[in-house]
Structure formats: C-alpha cells, structure tokens
Design a protein around this nucleic acid. Sequence first.
RNA 1: GUGGGUGUAGCUCAGGCGGUUAGAGCGCCAGGUUGUGGUCCUGGAAGUCGGGGGUUCAAGUCCCCUCAUCCACCCCA
Length: 431
Amino acid sequence: MTDLAQGPSAEPATHVFQAPTGTRDVLPGESVRWQTLVATFSERARRAGFGLVHTPVFEHYEVFQRVGEGSDVVRKEMYDFLDKGGRRLVLRPEGTAPVVRAFVQHHPPTPWKVWYLSTHLRYERPQKGRYRQHHQLGVEVLGVDEPEIDVEVIALADGFYRDLGLSSYTLSLNSLGDAECRPAYLAALREFLVAREPALSADARERLDVNPLRVLDSKRESDAEVTADAPLLVDHLSPASREHFDRVRRGLDALGIDYEVAPRLVRGLDYYTRTAFEFASTALDAAQNAIGGGGRYDRLAEEMGGPPTPGIGFGIGIERLLIAADAEGVLPVVEARAEVFVIDGFGGEADDALVELHRLRDGGYVTERSTGGRSFKGQMKAAGASGARYAVIVGRHEAERGAVAVRDMDSGDQAEVARAELLDWIGERYR
RNA sequence: GUGGGUGUAGCUCAGGCGGUUAGAGCGCCAGGUUGUGGUCCUGGAAGUCGGGGGUUCAAGUCCCCUCAUCCACCCCA
C-alpha cells in the first residue's frame, strides 16, 4: 500500500465524499431485506445445529496464502498491507480460511458446526453483482468426513433459497478427488494440456503451471475446444472418493434436491477436495450468476498447523442473492409503516402530543409524528403518507374533555376517546 | 488489469448543425378561510449540466485528460 504520509493528492475532491469504488451504502428499505435474509438464514442454521461465529475482518497474510497461490483471490485481489507494527495483514477476502484458523486456534470439540455473516474485500473491477466489499452468509463444518454431512450442508443452502421463495436456480456438483487420485490425474491432465499448449490462450497457459484444473473451466471458447476431450477427474477418482461422491449424490436424490454433475466445475480456491458445488441463478442473464458455492477442504486445518480435520462449507453472497431475488420478483422492498400517527393540535404550545406519542410507543406501537412545526393539514398529510392506520389527534377541543380524537385513516371514521383509555381502545382494534 | 457504453433537479429522463434567464414527469413544500390526509387545481423550492483543461465572440453541446458508474473479458459470491 502507498504511504499515506505522502500527503493529499492534488486531484479535485469531487468524489472523495462518495462511497469508494466497489462499495455501497445499504440504506433503510434495502437494509430491511438484509434483516430478512439474515433472520431466515439464522433460523435455518439454528435448526440444523449451527452456532454463530464472528471472526476478525483482517487476518495475518499467511492465513489466506494457504487458500492457494493458484487462485485469483490470493494472486491479485487481496487487500494486504503492513500495519504500524510491521505485521503483514489482509482484509478478509473469503470466509472459510478465517473460520478454519479459528478452529485450529481454539480446538473446539468436533463436529464443529458454525454459521456466519461476514464482510469480504477483494480488489477487483466491480460490476453488477461483484463488488470490492461484499457480504456472505455461510456455514462450515469441521471434523466430519462422511458424505451425509455434505448433503446436509448443501440441503441447508437449498432450503434457505426456498425459504426466500427462490426457484430459478441450479445446483452443479463435482468431485475434485483426494490425495490418492488427484496427483496422478493432474499429471495426466498436464501432459494432455502441454501437448496442446500452443492452442491455449495466454491465461490458460499461465494456469497450466499454477493449477491445471483451472484450465478446464475456462469460459473461453477456444480453450473449451482444446480441452473438449481432456481427461476428467470424475473418471479417475480413487475408490474412496468415488464412493463418497456416489453417496453424496444418493443423499441429494433422497432429499429430492435437483443437481447436475459438472465435471469441469473447479472453483477458484485451491483448497477444495472431493465435493465441490455451486448454485447459479437462472433468472439472471448477467455473467455474475453464482449465488452460492462451496465444497470440502479436508487438508486445510492441517496446513494451518492443526490436527488433520476434514471440513466442508459454503458461502452465499448477499448482494448477488438480492439481485437474483429481484429478478425472480421475490423479497420486495417494503417501506416501513407506522401504526399510529400523533397529530399535535396545539401548534407546539403544549406537550400533550409528545406525551401521548411516548405512551403509545411504550405500549408497543410503531408511532410517528411530523417534525418541523407543520400546519394541522400538513401533519394530516404526513399521517397519510406514514401508512399509519390511526391518527391520534391531540388538540384543544378534545383536551377540554380529557380526550383525544382517533381517526381511522382507511375509512375516515373518527371517534373521541378518553386519554386514559387510548391504549385499550387502539389495542382492541389493532391487535 | 484489458475493451466498450453512460454521467443534466432527490428519482427517471428531454435538450437539432455550439447561440439569450437549462426543461418535463414523478417526488418534496405551501396554498385552495376558521383544527382533518388520499383525488383535483394553483404556486414554490431545488441543478458546481461529474471534475479539470482546451478550441471559440459564445460550450450542457466540439476536443483532450481525469473521476465515477454500468457492461463484457478475467474471476467469483
């Protein structure tokens, strides 16, 4: 990172009081949808026995280095910097590595099942559905090897989508093999690719060295042609990986979760082993259609200095999920509505309206008033706009009788109610 | 990181081949008698035309740079 002490740049300050490139503010309205997402996910996770975990927004560089030199996330997208103590730190680009680091650090009993809502930062060129700061809901399970847990994890994501009302999405499934079968397969793949290297794109050739698997999921047509008859890992799985994969498929079938085997699905993080999966929205025509993805990472805990511990998890991007929800017309933005609106008929010369406002709020009602000393008529307009069902008019005429007027904003009916009975009166009708 | 599109009022957008005080719809505010919203009518506030430089008698309009944003590539959530 550049030295901040070099001083302010000379460029005009037209943009510095805007959210930085690739970041966005979540304002009321939109944030209500976030709350819905989080509450829905939280409930799903709770019922499946997951506990909430928070990890720091930054970690030591090495935590993510383990994620893999072959991944773009590590190679070119990390926000890394030296702090004032000379530590090399990284703003968290993904969610799994920090959770595994926490697992290794605290060595909780297994199975360790956690969910999270976390902020992620990656230095990339933003576009719709891809931001420099984004948020993910995710889960991780440490210490369970059996394929049924893979099914549980995938089913959790699927159930969450369905809870939200999403239906236009697909699940792609693949196995990336294990330590027994992957090395031999990689050698065979590399041999195949090296023989055809001149025909590959520059990007693909570069990947050939760092992670040949990634050449397979290149979206470039010319590369796809070259690798059309390349050996596929699903055909070279070890008996153990084969069986694991088959049992995951059997479990998904048993739960009625549709999927397609995607032999070229690799995913961008190097730590995946065996099960890898990705959910993609079919309601989006944009290139950013992955609404969730994950897989198994059986070596990661050990690589971080912990005991050999299998793991599996997924992440779901909130911003992107909301775009998919919009495309499907679910989870609409709902404006906040007041339940009761208090009109001050004293023109600010008495505090009666203020008192009623707070009695109503204490009584549990979403209660609003208008600010700015507006006229009676202006306050009525505000009451209408607030969506409140009742306007409580606190004014001189009624005050003489120790009462207020309550107007039903839908029907226009208006009644006089003793102040002492206001809460009961509204309670009978509202609740 | 590469290529392309777009930046005019809070929002969505008009502004011919440069030419007077830059417009519309929606929204917002205020009125349409004394304390009553929604519809309607009238009026009003609100714009560094993204920013900087250049060409010109004259630039929202043309040129260059820059910033932001969107799209594609790459990759991912």
